[in-house]
Structure formats: structure tokens, C-alpha cells
Design a binder for these strands. Structure first.
Lengths: 120, 120
DNA sequence: TAGATAAGTTAGCCGTGTCTAACTTTGGGA
DNA sequence: TCCCAAAGTTAGACACGGCTAACTTATCTA
């Protein structure tokens, strides 16, 4: 959960300037109370900084985690695309797959990606 | 959860002749009461047939699900291996990845597998 | 065949992630 | 400026998947 949240929060801050619960709820297809509860868990975990009714910000730890997740996500998506999978499916599957990919496997994906690029 | 259970139960029946809670608990690294609870959920879902204190059997639906899962598992593992990933990592990652792979992506894996086989 | 031991179950707890219903706060018009 | 709608929170419920402690059943062996 935490990974998906910080990833999305980082994206929202980048694209919108701030991250709001209502947008998070829409993107994940959950209801606002779920977001409130999860955000407070992220806060307890030191990933997020925030006061009630205000926008959500990432701590340094949160930003680091988000960066690692986004990088991993990009690699997985790019890899699936390189296999000829359509964008929508690649995005959807990557969402699930990325949390189960070890460093070893991620490196293998990167390596395969380089091969396919040189061979195109 | 259900998929992992029926997959393992099918394996145990094949290799041992029957599936016993104690073995399931060991393989998943959980305690026996967890297995009892989950088996009764599988029974409620119509995937498993069983009386208390006896071995566990799959229903037709359970067997079908198990077969689909095992096939998918084999493909994911073979695909990861074809990327040069070591067996242990391939097994471990496949366990997580397999539940998030759409039919489209599974087919792409199979296709890539054929390519790599013809090219070796 | 009677115990002891291994296997399995039951009861009750916890954390996670979800929901609905009802409330509060914020902020932008009229 | 005041009020209303949108955003956010709180309270309380639920299912899932895990645990420990304590109990019951099955089985093996002396």
C-alpha cells in the first residue's frame, strides 16, 4: 500500500503542485475515508507530512521511496511494452507485478531492455 | 490465497498421494490454525472437499483452477529463467508475479519463450 | 490394547484495508 | 459577510490472513 501511495503522491505533487485525498481516492478507486486512514498510516510510518484538511507532502524518506518505486515502475512498464504488450495492459499488469520483482529480476528486465533496443 | 492453496494441494496429491494441513503450513511458513481457517474458506468456495481430521481433496472446480495456476506458474518461471535469472530467484519472484499476469502478458511470455528457444 | 505423541481444531486476538453514515472544516460565490 | 457545496474526518462495521493457547482426534508403538 505505502509504495502505491507515495508513488501517486509524488506524481500528483509534480503534475498538480499538491496531493489531495480526493484525487488519490479517485485514482485508486476507493472511498475518501480509506484514504484518510491510509494517509495517517503513512504519517505514522514517517513517509508523509501533513495536517488535517491540508494537502499531503512527502518526507525525505517518502520521497526516496517514491523515487525508487517510480524507477522500478518505469522499468517494468518499458519491459512489458518491449514484449509487444499494449500500453493499457502493460500499465495495469505492471501495477501488480512491480511489488514482487526482486532486484535481480529488475536488473534482468533492464538488461533485456537494452538488448531489444540495440536490436530494433 | 485460494490459488496458492489449490496449486500446492494439487502438487501434494500428485507427489504424496494426499494433502495434509501440516505440509501446507510448512510450505507456506504459516501455523496450522491458519491452514485450518483457510481450508474451510476454500471449502466454502467450493474448491475443496474434506472432513475434519482427514486429508484434503480438490473438487472439479479446484482441480481446474489448480491446473490453470500450475500452467501459468510454469510459464512465468520458464520465462524468468530464459532471462538468465537464477532458479531460486525465478521461483520466488514467480510466486508473487503470477497472480498479476493477465492473459495478454502470459501469452507474450510464451511467445518470447519460443523466440529464445529457437535462438539458442 | 493403552498411552503418548503428532496432527488438527477451536476460540479469541491483532493489523490491514475496505466500506457506509454522519459529522466538521474549508473556501468560494451571492 | 455569510452560507453552501465540496472536501475531509470520525466512528463503527466487516472480511481476510495471520498469530497463540488450549483443546480434541488419530495413530503408532511399547
Amino acid at each position: 500500500m505505502a509504495e502505491d501511495y507515495v508513488e501517486l503522491i509524488a506524481e500528483l505533487i509534480e503534475s498538480r503542485g499538491e496531493a489531495r485525498p480526493v484525487e488519490i481516492a479517485e485514482r485508486f478507486g476507493v472511498k475518501p475515508p480509506t484514504v484518510t486512514k491510509n494517509i495517517s498510516r503513512l504519517k505514522a510510518a514517517g513517509l508523509v507530512r501533513r495536517e488535517p484538511y491540508r494537502a499531503i507532502f512527502l518526507t525525505d524518506a517518502g520521497r526516496e521511496l517514491a523515487e525508487a518505486c517510480r524507477r522500478r515502475h518505469r522499468i517494468v512498464v518499458a519491459f512489458l511494452l518491449s514484449l509487444g504488450i499494449d500500453e493499457e495492459t502493460a500499465e495495469r499488469d505492471a501495477e501488480g507485478i512491480e511489488h514482487h520483482v526482486s532486484t535481480t529480476t529488475l536488473e534482468a528486465f533492464e538488461h533485456a531492455l537494452l538488448q531489444s533496443e540495440s536490436g530494433k
